[in-house]
């Protein structure tokens, strides 16, 4: 499988008044052509920063210490900013942001906002651009597109606005779509429709998609591969089935069991104690150790490497070391996983 985008050993520090924050500590992410990869983690784990590095939108106090981001064979980090803007952003890689109200210009008509990027990146006549915008609005499922072209963002509902944002992202036929929490601000019913829409478009246009989200329900619906991020590191990566039916990292266990499914009827929800580490101070050993009830002595001293579980499944926890003691999964999670596997079998 060929990777359209590979992020290798990315390492980013932010300079702030309080000191240097080591936000990204050696991240590898691979996006196979035509597939969907999800990036999951708590706020502050570095998922958005990683993707902002890809599109060159990092704040000016960010320092990229090391790493490469390859789009096909081009290293985006070595590319001059101007060239990145002219040739890559929008045309090859487009982004959909979380809040559709703040990512649209309130003083501009929808139609103009969609054609704006086309005029910028392509030699295209006004009539052609208008026609294209109309097609895009139809593609994203906006009824009465011709009339809507003249509307302003405030005249549309949240779901419609997000559809417009997606239409803008698709206007220059990008190869990669990065969706940063695209449905967090939306209702469940609207969310389901938007996710289905992105999926349909992906199949039609052969897009590769990256989702940034903390909602595991969304991940289960859309992703082929999942990367779980914690404190600026990828701590588990695998196919969506491997992560949901056979998770290996205690943090992934915690995430899965903290979100009740519709059958959860335990008295208490399993919760991950404490809160994520402050990256102002470089964590010693495993960054998750302080919140991990399975932590061993070595977790406090040395950072675990990625242990290989299968060709696609890796996890960074000392529990996978051949010398580590065998641990029992928390009972809530065990029954949960059994339930999930059984439900999966019934589907087939």
């Amino acid at each position: 499988m060929e990777n359209i985008l590979s992020i290798k050993n990315l390492d980013i520090t932010f300079r702030t008044n309080a000191g240097n924050i080591h936000a990204i500590r050696g991240v590898d992410i691979y996006l196979p052509t035509g597939k969907t990869v999800a990036l999951v983690g708590e706020s502050g784990s570095g998922k958005s920063v990683t993707m902002k590095a890809v599109v060159g939108l990092l704040d000016s106090n960010a320092i990229i210490n090391s790493g490469n981001i390859f789009y096909k064979a081009i290293d985006l980090l070595t590319l001059p900013k101007k060239e990145l803007r002219q040739k890559i952003n929008g045309q090859q890689i487009a982004m959909v942001f979380q809040d559709p109200m703040t990512s649209l210009n309130p003083t501009m008509q929808i139609g103009d906002q969609i054609t704006e990027a086309m005029f910028l990146h392509k030699k295209i006549s006004k009539a052609d651009a208008q026609q294209k915008a109309l097609e895009l609005l139809n593609l994203v499922g906006i009824i009465d597109a011709e009339k809507r072209m003249k509307n302003y963002p405030h005249q549309l509902s949240g779901g419609m606005r997000q559809r417009v944002v997606i239409a803008i992202a698709l206007s220059c036929e990008p190869k990669i779509l990065i969706c940063d929490e695209p449905t967090t601000a939306l209702d469940v019913t609207v969310q389901a429709r938007i996710l289905d829409l992105i999926k349909d478009i992906q199949a039609q246009m052969g897009l590769s998609v990256i989702y940034i989200t903390h909602d595991l329900g969304v991940v289960a619906k859309v992703a082929d591969f999942v990367n779980v991020m914690y404190a600026g590191k990828i701590i588990e990566t695998g196919t969506v089935e491997e992560i949901f039916y056979d998770p290996r990292h205690p943090y992934t266990w915690g995430l899965l069991s903290a979100m009740p499914d519709l059958e959860t009827d335990d008295d208490r929800l399993y919760s991950i104690p404490g809160s994520p580490p402050n990256l102002l101070h470089e964590p010693k050993g495993d960054a998750f150790a302080a919140r991990n009830k399975f932590a061993m002595k070595i977790d406090m001293e040395a950072e675990p490497p990625m242990f290989k579980i299968s060709e696609t499944h890796y996890a960074a926890t000392w529990l996978l070391h051949p010398d580590a003691p065998k641990v029992e999964l928390p009972p809530e999670l065990k029954s949960r996983l059994q339930r999930a596997r059984k439900a999966a079998e019934n589907q087939l």
């Binding site: 389901a192 289960a220 519709l262 999930a340």
Partner: peptide, 29 residues
């Protein structure tokens, strides 16, 4: 949850994301 009668409730419940890929990928709204 086990016997939703109103069509809106049914529609709402059908949209609840489930953390289970096999179920999620075959679901119809």
């Amino acid at each position: 949850f086990s016997n939703p009668v109103h069509p809106y409730t049914q529609s709402l419940l059908s949209a609840v994301p489930q953390p289970n890929p096999a179920v999620e990928k075959n679901r119809r709204l």
